[in-house]
Amino acid sequence: MHQESAAKPLHQRLLAGEPAAAEELVTTEGGRLFQASRRILGNEEDALDCVQEAFAKAFQKISTFEGRSDISTWLYRILINESLIRLRQKRRSKIIDIDSLMPEFDIEGCRIEPPWQPVKDPEQLAESGEIRRHVRAAIDILPEDARNVLLLRDIEELNTRETAEILEISEAAVKVRLHRARAALKKLLEPHFGAGDVE
């Protein structure tokens, strides 16, 4: 009987109300979800709250899971939505005017760009706690639409289609917002590479 039960897909065992199935889901997916939420939110406390909310919603809505994707993908999407909602609720002191951070061109359409002369590579820079705080602060001041796309595409490494589905926007909108977010972060963060001030 136990073997028969274990052979059933996890979502069916959850639907049948098997306590062991819930425990299995929390054990196998909890860490991964915690890490994803931590990446999006930037702090553990909020991430742990979101993980709990995501599991609560998943258990409540398990009957709506149609089995088209893996249950871990379904759960991950619930978690991402919870994390983005939490991120929206967090009060932000300042949101940058993203247009002011876009690349510059002269009247002939030629780019105006300072020479790129970095003193460290990205991996080396990321070892510094101060730099990591600058990166998080730069993400935090992006407008919500650009920030969410950046978090899903560049941090969670979802593809354009997955990002569009989660955010319920078109793939073209994902591409535009991602580019604006990346261009803005470049402008905000490039001084930390030691570039931009030497001709």
Binding site: P122, E127, I131, V135, I155
Partner: peptide, 16 residues
């Protein structure tokens, strides 16, 4: 610069 910044953002959040 664009590529390096994208890589920095990824590395920083992953490390964080």
């Amino acid at each position: 610069a664009y590529t390096a910044t994208r890589d920095l953002v990824r590395a920083a959040i992953r490390t964080e």
